[in-house]
Computed example of a mutant assay.
Amino acid sequence: MIDRIWLYRGVLAGVLSAVAGACLAASGDMAALPAFSAQAPASSPVTPFAPPAESSMPTDGFGKSAKLGEQIFTHTQTFAGKYVGNTLNCASCHLDAGRKADSSPLWGAYPLYPAYRSKNGHVNSFAERLQGCFMYSMNGKAPPLGDPVLVALESYAYWLAKGAPIGEKLPGQGYPKLPAPAQKADYARGSAVYAQHCALCHGADGQGQSSGGQTVFPPLWGAQSFNWGAGMGDIQNAAGFIKANMPLGLAGTLTDQQAWDVATFMDSHERPQDPRFLGSVEATRAKFHDSPHSMYGQTVNGQVLGASGSR
């Protein structure tokens, strides 16, 4: 049987071959000042971090754990289904099996932990950060610390980050932060952008597409998407991801304004309830969503978002 991972990549390769390739721009940084020089440092391009080639993954006990982590990452429902509550995979938002810059790559996240997170008010280990992904983005439940699923994902992330500096920001980590839009982000304009650039893959109803029981293009709202506590529910995060990565194979072709507008449209639809729900939408918004970048608790098309989200 053809390995599911290569089947998944083959599907994406077919999509990518049908559209124009994307170009990624390398970031710049200041070169080191030469010794005894009074001259200002000259700028030189920073070489983007490159994770190790898949062919170099070891085959020993650690390598087997890392390989399992890759399988969990790309086919999360299949390999970690008891912890997943929707049809997404980790790779739905962290593209190219967690390798792609500007789509919150694993090699960019691993070296930044342990770190304090305001989301839960304490220092998180990388394993605890992964637990949050299952709770929010996967709308599921957190694997216990030490669970083989978490260990495998940590192993894969550790291997991808081989050679990356610890605790330093690297080009391509996380999602890009777009400047504020020239015009206030608008639902109606976003709807038009979605119909023109997104619906072909994600469906007019936002429910995505699957093939052979495997999600190919993820649902963007509704019961099978991420819940209200997920990072992609923040319009700023979604706009940065969309600008850098969407449409698939045509990254960077949307304007900043279009990215903000379509992110607002996407995040203005109902989805599963925030697991931190405090008993009312008002209290939950005040505690966790008091931000202009969150649509939770806002009224759109006569509906209070979050009021009908299932728990």
Rank of each mutant, 00 (worst) to 15 (best):
I242N: 05
N227P: 04
S92K: 06
L160M: 10
P275S: 12
T76I: 07
I235K: 09
L95D: 02
A42Y: 07
G14W: 07
N120R: 06
T76Q: 03
A115D: 06
Q258H: 07
P114T: 05
G172Y: 02
P275M: 12
S291M: 15
P181E: 01
C90S: 01
A25M: 05
Y8L: 12
E54Y: 02
E270S: 03
F126V: 08
L305Q: 13
G249Q: 04
K287F: 08
S308G: 00
K64N: 05
F241M: 03
V19G: 10
Q77C: 02
L170R: 12
S43M: 12
A109I: 09
N86E: 12
Q214G: 08
S280L: 13
L153F: 02
Q258K: 10
G146Y: 11
K64E: 06
M232W: 06
T264R: 12
S118C: 01
S268P: 05
G69W: 00
M138V: 01
P171M: 08
M57H: 04
F36D: 08
L248S: 09
A35W: 02
P148I: 11
G10C: 03
G174D: 04
V46G: 01
L250C: 13
Y83C: 00
A230I: 13
Y156F: 05
P143R: 12
Q236H: 03
S56T: 04
T253W: 00
T253Q: 01
D256N: 14
A223C: 08
